[in-house]
Amino acid sequence: MRYGILLMGAPYSSQASHSALRFAKAVVARGHALEGVFFYHDGVQNAARLAAPPQDEPHLVDAWAELAAEHGVPLQVCIAAALRRGLLDEREAARHGKQGHSVEAPFELTGLGQLVDLGLRCDRLITFAP
């Protein structure tokens, strides 16, 4: 089956990111196709490339990137929700005249239309929220 995940909780604030990540791994382990993870609301914070959690805690940003690298899962971040919260890739940083950027590949800033598309294209869309 084709699965999609919608994540709306910030990492290290609620359990939503942990639940979503565990579920993502379980979906892949069952042999399903995970067609994408869409980050919306405070979930966009999962894309913060500068996150530096203590070493004895799971590094959620890296864990998402590993999931993308190992299984080719697109990590789509709502651009409107991200920009408001200070999450900009190099292109957006330049466009807004900001020094430095806070989002990098494999996370990609994209429009909300991608969420609707993911939800209607996949057999299952599972939402994790705070």
Binding site: M1, Y3, A16, F23, A26, V27, R30, H32, R124, L125, I126, T127, F128, A129, P130
Partner: peptide, 15 residues
């Protein structure tokens, strides 16, 4: 959990 989502037509989250 994954099996439950397979068996259901769809899922809804309440938070």
């Amino acid at each position: 959990f994954v099996t439950l989502t397979e068996d259901a037509d769809r899922t809804l989250s309440w938070f």
